[in-house]
Amino acid sequence: MLDAVTAFSRGTRCVYQSGMRRYIFLPILVNLIVYVGMFSFVFNRFDGWLAHWMNMVPTWLDWLSWLIWPLFVISLLVVVFFTFTLVTSFIAAPFYGFLAAKVEVQVTGREPTDDRSLTKTAIDALGRELVKLAYILPRAAGLFVISWIPGVNLVAPLLWALFSAWVMAITYLDYPMDNNKVSFTDMRQRLSKRWWQSLSYGGLITLITWIPLANLFLIPGAVAGAVLMWDAHYRDACHDARNIKPL
């Protein structure tokens, strides 16, 4: 069976071969613009944010400054990571959907079942991203709150790791599924049934997105790898909506 690492490596080779490279230029450009803009924004305001955060700490907790500062930095990194991922996914969704369709034809010889026009597909892709945001943001907010509850926050890093993997699975495996008329609810059910494949691929992509600059050029490979995962694990996945509750 196809595993996450093999799917990603094959997908990356696929998008950088002759005839496919022209489909990844715009997604990479979008990622680069967002990356540079977000990095500049955070870099220019980091000191002010840190000073404001530390001023909010009560005087009697000054002795915990050594712990509060790293927690602030970690929290900021998590927020930046999710913001970067969500923003780039939203802006580049039409390009990623188009790339996924081209990869599917290239590697499987089958056309996606989607018969929408290119314009309709692009518009629908943005709507699909809004559905994803409506699903992801409340859960991310809940985890953020948990991260600051004494005692409970001890398991927060594990929960964030699992949630990040699940979000990445939803984000990337949805491109080929949307191209093949799989609804958002149906997509989550399929991912839940193949939970190991979903979390392993999502976890791998999470690690990749943390690699500075290199992630800009690896994300198209993640889209292509998702097509391979779709074809190997999810295309023919049977599910019973009565027995499988989507996450």
Rank of each mutant, 00 (worst) to 15 (best):
M1L: 14
M1Y: 11
T6R: 10
F8M: 06
F8N: 05
S9M: 14
R10Q: 13
R10I: 06
R10E: 15
C14E: 15
C14S: 15
V15I: 12
Y16E: 13
Q17P: 11
R21F: 12
L26K: 12
I28P: 04
I28L: 13
V34F: 08
V34D: 08
Y35E: 08
M38G: 06
F39P: 00
G48H: 13
W53M: 13
W53N: 08
M54A: 08
N55G: 15
V57T: 15
P58R: 02
P58V: 13
W60F: 15
W60A: 14
D62S: 13
L64E: 14
S65V: 14
W66P: 03
L67A: 15
L67M: 12
W69K: 11
P70K: 10
P70D: 05
L71T: 12
V73K: 00
L76R: 10
V78M: 15
V79Q: 08
V79C: 10
V80Q: 07
F81D: 05
S89I: 00
F90C: 01
I91T: 09
A92N: 05
A92Y: 03
A93M: 05
P94D: 01
Y96V: 01
G97Q: 07
L99Y: 02
K102M: 12
K102C: 11
V105C: 09
V107M: 02
T108H: 11
R110C: 11
D115P: 00
K120N: 01
T121I: 00
D124A: 04
D124Q: 02
E129Q: 09
V131A: 07
K132E: 00
L133Q: 03
L133Y: 06
Y135Q: 01
A140T: 10
L143G: 03
I146F: 03
S147A: 15
S147C: 14
I149P: 00
L154P: 01
A156E: 07
A161W: 10
L162W: 02
L162S: 04
L162M: 09
S164H: 03
V167L: 03
V167Y: 01
P176S: 06
M177L: 11
M177R: 07
N180I: 05
F184V: 03
D186S: 10
D186A: 10
M187E: 06
Q189Y: 08
K193W: 03
K193H: 07
S198I: 03
G203K: 10
I205N: 04
W210T: 14
P212H: 11
L213F: 15
L213P: 04
L213K: 06
N215Y: 09
L218I: 11
I219D: 07
G221K: 02
V223Y: 01
G225A: 09
A226H: 02
L228W: 02
M229S: 03
W230L: 01
A232L: 08
Y234D: 02
R235Q: 14
C238N: 09
A241Q: 12
R242W: 14
I244N: 03
I244S: 05
L247Y: 14
